[in-house]
Amino acid sequence: MELLVSDYLVPVGMALTVLALWFSAPDRATRMKQQIGVFAALTALGLSSLAVFVINSVYFRPRPFVDHDLTLLFYQPTDSSFPANSVAAAFGLATVVWSVNRPVGISLLLAAFAWGFARVYSGVHYPSDVLAAAAIGIIVGILVLKLRDLLGPIPVWVIKAARLICLA
């Protein structure tokens, strides 16, 4: 559990998956879809963190180990417990990836869920922190997917420019 809750296992695994999506499509149309998805996923990750930052600036909830006698399996974070920033970012990213590649997206959603569970189990978040974070991540992910249709030409131009030097 100490491994799963780490700041490095799930985030690096998810980031590697997004990196792999850039290279792994078998044909041109799927590649364009997945590469636009990479831009959208990174946007969702950023906007989920921004949403949590805004909520944290108006509401502070102490961590569970502050108010309860717990055996902590993690270091003692000092920022607000609600909502869980890392989980919101993970769900935001996974939601967008799910829209472009179902099997990979489901794997990432499961990883995000497992990470959230591990953070509750380890005593650094309340279940409601993780549930709220998952909701924020999913909502932001869906909004980014709507926005993707409006901002479509920008990532397409970037991908076309990268294609000129065989990088997309």
Partner: peptide, 10 residues
Amino acid sequence: AIQIAATFGG
């Protein structure tokens, strides 16, 4: 990861 992905992308 790039090597593995490149095999899937051909």
